[in-house]
Every structure is written in C-alpha cells, then in structure tokens.
C-alpha cells in the first residue's frame, strides 16, 4: 500500500470550503440550541401541564431516537409538503436535537438553584419573572456550562452526519473529489485530522470557560 496525498492538496479549496460550512453550521446550531434550550427549559418548568407536557414529550423524543432518523424525517417528510432547502433542514434538525439535550440540562440546573436564591430576590422586591430572569436563569446557565460545552463538542462532530442529506460540509464536499481521484483513505483521514484539531481547540475553550464560570457559582 502506498499513500498519495496530492489529490487532497489539489482539492484543498473544496475541502476548505467544507470546513467553512462546518464551522458556520456549528456556530448557528450552538446559538440556536443554547438559547432555545434555555427558553424551552423555563417554559417546561414554569407553565401549566397543557403547555409543558408536549414540550417534555418532544425533549424525550429527540433524546431517545437517532439524529439521522430525525433528519430523514425532516428532510424527506417535511420536504413532501413544503419545499425547504437542505441547509435549513440540517441546521433546524441538528438545532432541535441539541436544543432537547440542552433543555434537559437546563431543567436540572434550574432545579438545582436553591430556594434561598429565589427568596432573597423576592425579599428585595423582585417579582417572579424578574427573579427568573436576573437570578435563577443566569445561575443555572453558569452551572450548566460544563455539560453544555460538552454537548457542543459532540454536536460539532455530528455535523458530519448532515452530509447524508446533502449539506456541503467537509464529508460531502470531498465526496466528488473522492469519486474522481479514488483516494477515500487520504481524504477521510484528512477530514478526521481537521475534526480532531477543531475538537482540541474546543476542549481548550471548554477548560477556559469552566475556569471563568467556576467562581460565579
């Protein structure tokens, strides 16, 4: 066996474009799923059953079924009725999937904020909603950060799955190149290396975030 990485170098711009798409999707999904997860968690905890039961059901459903199955359902299923671009399906699919996981964490950390915090805020004259907004949710956020950043690290790796519905991230971007150069090993090992690098950077970021959050909780 011999390896030839020159096709990878020839198709470097294509691959780089895939990296760009991967990173953009990553940022979009992270923002969407963290903010959404927080909102879903608050609604789930502080509303009547008619509202929070469907939400709890969807959190549970997203967590107990595979991402790819969810993507197929959205892509081929919803696509039957309304025409939406694959990229939107991908970002929403991945976004909802991780929104459920993040909401699950937020629900736990919101519950873990002691009742004394609630009372202290109320005794100052803050109402229920403002207490949630200024006191409970920010604290829950800091407490959630370690698990939250874990989820985001896992999420970025799952972006590769979006190639299955034709989104031009790294794997999909290199598929044409592979089909004409017949060098799958070289391409996939390069993609793995890029993912590993992204992962290392995210882990470093996670350590930094956790250290900063630690003295706020």
């Amino acid at each position: 066996m011999e390896f030839d990485f020159s096709p990878v170098i020839d198709y470097w711009p294509t691959l780089l474009q895939g990296v760009g798409v991967t990173l953009l999707i990553g940022v979009a999904v992270a923002v969407f799923s963290v903010i959404g997860g927080q909102i879903v968690a608050v609604i789930t905890l502080y509303t009547r059953k008619v509202v929070n039961w469907p939400l709890r059901f969807f959190i549970w459903l997203f967590m107990t079924t595979p991402l790819l199955l969810q993507l197929y359902f959205l892509y081929f299923g919803i696509g039957e009725w309304i025409l939406i671009p694959a990229i939107v399906v991908g970002v929403l699919g991945l976004g909802f999937h991780y929104m459920a996981y993040n909401a699950d964490i937020f629900i736990a950390t919101i519950k873990s904020v002691s009742s004394g915090q609630y009372e202290a805020s109320r005794s100052l004259g803050f109402g229920h909603l403002r207490t949630l907004l200024y006191i409970i949710v920010p604290q829950a956020f800091y407490r959630a950060l370690p698990q939250l950043s874990n989820n985001m690290i896992i999420m970025v790796k799952d972006i590769s799955v979006l190639s299955a519905i034709g989104i031009g991230e790294m794997v999909y971007a290199s598929q044409y190149a592979i089909s004409v150069t017949f060098r799958p090993f070289e391409f996939y090992i390069t993609i793995a290396a890029i993912y590993y690098l992204i992962n290392l950077m995210m882990e470093a970021g996670q350590t930094w975030i956790e250290r900063r959050a630690a003295y706020r909780s």
């Binding site: 972006i159 799955v161 592979i178 799958p184 793995a192 993912y195």
Partner: peptide
C-alpha cells in the same frame, strides 16, 4: 473521542 464516529466509519469502510 476527538473525531466523528461517522468519519471513522467512512474511513474504515471506503478507505480500509
């Protein structure tokens, strides 16, 4: 742990 399972799968199946 630092690379996607999906890419590992493709690497071994197609690149193997």
């Amino acid at each position: 742990r630092g690379t996607p399972y999906f890419v590992q799968l493709l690497l071994i199946f197609y690149g193997g």
